[in-house]
Design a binder for these strands. Structure first.
Length: 732
DNA sequence: CTACCAGTCCTTTTT
DNA sequence: GGACTGGTAG
C-alpha cells in the first residue's frame, strides 16, 4: 500500500489506485487527476506483482490518450509497454483481428475504411443498385449502417417496421457483402467483428479472459453499446474491470455514447467499489463553483461536487457585445493584454460551440496580428492528396479495393470519364469480379485507357517489390503522376509539400517506430509487409489536426475538441440561445442536458481566468440573427460573475494576475526507473536538431549502447522515440 | 470528358 | 457565408 508510487496521491486517488482485485467504478471529475490514477493503478498492480505486463488491457478512445498513458507508465516503472495491451478500442480491435484474421474471415492485409471511404463505398453501392438518393441519402445510409453496428446489430437483427427501414436494412446487407468482397472493414466493423469472434468462439474467449486479469477503461462515459459488450467479452471470472469516467462530461451521446453504461456496469458486475475523485487541481473556486452550480441543474446525474484548495481567484468575466465582430475584437484585445501581462498565447483558449463561429474570431485575430492555431478540420492522412497517394498504395496491396480504384482511376485526369466507368462497373457486376479485374472484359477506347491504368498499377507493384517503404512511396508519387499534377497546379505547392511529408512519415514509421510494433498482430502468423502496416497506421491514426504546432499561439477549438485540455485563460464565446445551447438540442430534455454538460466541460477547462461572451447580433447562414443571452447565465452563481459593459471594458482594467510569477509547477511523476540522465551525450531537457524533424526537446532517455533510445518532442513533428544508433541528432 | 455555374444545406467528432 | 452537388455548355 505504501508504495512510493502512491505517495504523491491524495487519499481518494490512492485508494482508487490500490483497490483490491475487484471491479471498480471511479467517478473522476474534471481536473481530478484521472489519468494519473489510471496509470498509477497499472504501475501499482505491476509493482506489487498482482499481474504481469501481459495481463493488462487498458483501453482509451484517442491515440493521444493511449500514448500519454504509455508515456507516463514508462516514467514510473521500467516496464515494456508493448507487452501490455494499451490502445484505443479500434487500435486493439485491429491488433486482435490481425491475429485472428482467419477466424474473422478476413484477408490478413484487410484495409480499413475511414468515414470518407465508407461514404464513398456507400455511394458507389447506391449507384450500382439505382437507389434514389433523394429518398435514401448516402450520408444517412452510412450513418444508419454505423449506428446499427454500434448497437451490435447485423442486418438480420435490425427491426424493420416500415418499408423505408426494410430498404435500408437491405442496403446494409449489400454494403456488408461489398466490403467482404473487397477485403475492407470500416471502423465500426473492427469493433463488431472482434466482438462476434469473442462471443462465438468459447475457447478463444476463455483464452483472453484468462490472460487479461485487469481491464482498465478510460472515459467510460463515452462507451457505446457495442464497446461495453466488447469489454464484457474480455472479462472473465478472474478479471477485474476498472472503469474511470465522469457522467458530467458525457458529450458524445450524438454518436452513440451511452452514459447509462456506467449504471449498467455497476449492476452487471455488482461493483462494490465506487470512488469519487472530487478534489480539483486545476481551477480556482469561482470557476469551479460556476461549473458545479451549472451542472446541478441536470436531473440525471450520479452526483459529484468538485472542490479546490486554491481559493476564490478572480471572478468570471462576462461580456456582452453588440455584434459578433465586436465580440471577437474585444476578445482579441483582452487576449493581447493577457499576453502583455506575461501570459503565453498558447495558454489562452477560445472555445465555441460550432465550427462556423471560428471564422469571425480568426479574422479578428488575423487582423490584429495575433498568432492563432485552429484545432479541427482536415488531418494529415485525411487530406485529398494524401488519400489519393494512399489509394494507389492500397490498390497495389489489394486490387480488390474498389473504393481506392474509383478514387484514382481518373486522377490525375487520364481521359477516363463517367461513361467508361459505367461500362466497367457493368462488366464487373456481370462477371462478379472487382473493377480491377473487370478491365479485361472492356473493349474499345475505354478499355485501352483503363487498361493503361491497371497496367500502371501492376508495373508499380513489380517495380517496388524490393524497395523500402519510403522508396516505394516516392516512386509511386512520381509514376502515378500525382506530383506532376500538383506541381503544375496553381495552388498545388502545399499539396506537393504534403506529399513529400508523406515520404518522411513513412520513413519515421519504419526506422523509428520499427514499423508499428503495436500494429503487428502476433507471433504465430506471417508478418505484415511494411506497406500494409503503414496503410493501417494511416487509417487508424489520422495524424495531427492542428496547423503549425510549436508556435506560441492562441488556441481555437470547439468545446468538444477542448475536452481533456486545460488553459490558464479561457474564452467561451457565442453564449446565445440557439447557439449554445444549440437550437437542435433544445427540444428534448436529454439534448439540453448534454448541452449543459458541454458548457460544464467548457468552464472546467480554465485554470485561472474565465471569460463568457455573447453578442446581441450575429451573422449566421448569411443573415443577421438577433440573439438572446444563453439560459446558462441564469444557472451560474451571480456572486462568481463580474459583468463587463462594452464601454468600460477593455480600456478600464488591467489584468491583475502576475502570470510570470504563477508559472505552473510541473509535478514530477514518481519514478522507479534508474535515472537515465546522460546517454550518448544527451540529457533530459536538451534542445536537439534532427535533419528530418527539425528542432526538438529531449523528454526522456532509456537503454544504453546500441539500444539507447531518446524520446524527443519535435516542434513541428510531435513526440517521437528515436534509436540513437540510427538517428542523426545534434545538440543545439 | 471537363470545367464552370447555380441551387441546397447547414451541430458537436474519434476511430 | 461557403462547401458540396448536380446540371449544362464547351
Amino acid at each position: 500500500m505504501s508504495s512510493p508510487l502512491v505517495q504523491s496521491l491524495n487519499p481518494e486517488q490512492a485508494r482508487a489506485a490500490t483497490l483490491p482485485n475487484e471491479h471498480a467504478l471511479i467517478l473522476a471529475g474534471a481536473g481530478s487527476g484521472k489519468t494519473r490514477v489510471l496509470t498509477t493503478r497499472i504501475a501499482w498492480l505491476l509493482q506489487q506483482g498482482h499481474v504481469g505486463a501481459g495481463g493488462i488491457l487498458a483501453v482509451t478512445f484517442t491515440n493521444k490518450a493511449a500514448k500519454e498513458m504509455k508515456l507516463r507508465l514508462t516514467s514510473m516503472l521500467p516496464v515494456n509497454v508493448n507487452a501490455m495491451w494499451i490502445g484505443t478500442f479500434h487500435g486493439l480491435c485491429n491488433r486482435f483481428l490481425r491475429a485472428h484474421y482467419k477466424l474473422a474471415g478476413l484477408p490478413q492485409t484487410f484495409q480499413i475504411l475511414d468515414t470518407q471511404d465508407q461514404l464513398s463505398a456507400v455511394k458507389r453501392l447506391c449507384k450500382q443498385f439505382n437507389i434514389d438518393d433523394e429518398q435514401y441519402p448516402p450520408k444517412q445510409l452510412s450513418w444508419f449502417i454505423s449506428n446499427c453496428k454500434d448497437d451490435a446489430k447485423r442486418p438480420k437483427d435490425v427491426e424493420a417496421n416500415d418499408s423505408a427501414t426494410r430498404k435500408k436494412i437491405e442496403l446494409y446487407q449489400l454494403y456488408e457483402e461489398q466490403c467482404q468482397r473487397e477485403g475492407v472493414v470500416d471502423f465500426a466493423e473492427l469493433m463488431l467483428r472482434s466482438y462476434e469472434i469473442l462471443r462465438d468462439f468459447d475457447e478463444l474467449r476463455t483464452h483472453y479472459q484468462r490472460r487479461f486479469q485487469h481491464i482498465l477503461v478510460d472515459e467510460f462515459q463515452d462507451t457505446n453499446k457495442l464497446q461495453y459488450a466488447w469489454l464484457k467479452m474480455f472479462s472473465g471470472v478472474g478479471s477485474s474491470m476498472f472503469a474511470v469516467g465522469d457522467d458530467d462530461q458525457s458529450i458524445y451521446a450524438f454518436r452513440g455514447a451511452r452514459v447509462g453504461n456506467m449504471a449498467d456496469f455497476v449492476r452487471d458486475f455488482s461493483v462494490q467499489h465506487q470512488i469519487k475523485l472530487e478534489q480539483n487541481y486545476r481551477s480556482y473556486s469561482n470557476i469551479l463553483d460556476s461549473a458545479n452550480e451549472l451542472i446541478s441543474h441536470n436531473q440525471r446525474r450520479l452526483g459529484k461536487n468538485l472542490r479546490t484548495d486554491q481559493g476564490a481567484g478572480e471572478p468570471v468575466r462576462v461580456f456582452e457585445a453588440t455584434g459578433d465582430l465586436a465580440e471577437a475584437k474585444w476578445m482579441v484585445d483582452e487576449a493581447r493584454q493577457l499576453h502583455r501581462g506575461g501570459l503565453d498565447l498558447k495558454e489562452i483558449a477560445v472555445l465555441y460551440r460550432s465550427n462556423a463561429q471560428s471564422r469571425v474570431i480568426e479574422t479578428a485575430l488575423f487582423n490584429a496580428g495575433v498568432p492563432y492555431r485552429v484545432y479541427g478540420g482536415l488531418r494529415f492522412f485525411e487530406r485529398a492528396e494524401i488519400k489519393h497517394a494512399l489509394a494507389y498504395l492500397r490498390l497495389m496491396e489489394n486490387p480488390l479495393d474498389d473504393t481506392s480504384f474509383m478514387r484514382v482511376v481518373n486522377f490525375p485526369p487520364r481521359g477516363i470519364g463517367a461513361r467508361s466507368i459505367e461500362q466497367l462497373q457493368d462488366a464487373a457486376k456481370a462477371a462478379g469480379v472487382s473493377l480491377y479485374s473487370a478491365v479485361q472484359h472492356i473493349t474499345g477506347k475505354a478499355g485501352t485507357n483503363i487498361g493503361g491504368f491497371v497496367a500502371k498499377i501492376d508495373v508499380l507493384r513489380e517495380q517496388t517489390v524490393s524497395l523500402t517503404l519510403s522508396e516505394t512511396i516516392k516512386l509511386v508519387l512520381e509514376h502515378s503522376g500525382l506530383l506532376e499534377h500538383y506541381r503544375t497546379e496553381r495552388e498545388g505547392a502545399d499539396r506537393v509539400e504534403n506529399l513529400e511529408e508523406l515520404v518522411s512519415a513513412a520513413e519515421s514509421f519504419v526506422t523509428i517506430e520499427g514499423f508499428g510494433k503495436e500494429e503487428q498482430a502476433g507471433s504465430d502468423d506471417e508478418v505484415m509487409s511494411p506497406l500494409a502496416a503503414f496503410l493501417t497506421h494511416a487509417a487508424l491514426e489520422a495524424g495531427d489536426n492542428m496547423a503549425d504546432a510549436g508556435q506560441d499561439a492562441v488556441q481555437m477549438m470547439t468545446v468538444h475538441a477542448s475536452k481533456g485540455l486545460e488553459f490558464d485563460a479561457v474564452f467561451i464565446t457565442g453564449l446565445e440561445e440557439g447557439l449554445f445551447p444549440h437550437e437542435n438540442s433544445q427540444s428534448d430534455a436529454d439534448g439540453l442536458e448534454e448541452e449543459r454538460r458541454l458548457m460544464y466541460v467548457a468552464i472546467t477547462r480554465a485554470r485561472k481566468r474565465l471569460y463568457l461572451t455573447y453578442s446581441q447580433t450575429r451573422l449566421l447562414h448569411g443573415q443577421t440573427r438577433y440573439g438572446i443571452k444563453s439560459r446558462f447565465f441564469d444557472e451560474l452563481p451571480e456572486a462568481c460573475l463580474r459583468w463587463i459593459t462594452p464601454k468600460n471594458s477593455a480600456s478600464t482594467y488591467k489584468p491583475q494576475w502576475d502570470w510570470a510569477a504563477s508559472k505552473k509547477v510541473v509535478e514530477a511523476a514518481p519514478s522507479l526507473a534508474p535515472k537515465a540522465s546522460d546517454v550518448q551525450g544527451l540529457a533530459k531537457g536538451m534542445q536537439v536538431f534532427h535533419t528530418k524533424f527539425g528542432e526538438g526537446k529531449v523528454l526522456s532517455l532509456e537503454g544504453a549502447g546500441l539500444d539507447a533510445r531518446a524520446q524527443i518532442n519535435f516542434n513541428r513533428h510531435g513526440t517521437k522515440w528515436l534509436a540513437l544508433s540510427v538517428a542523426k541528432l545534434t545538440v543545439i
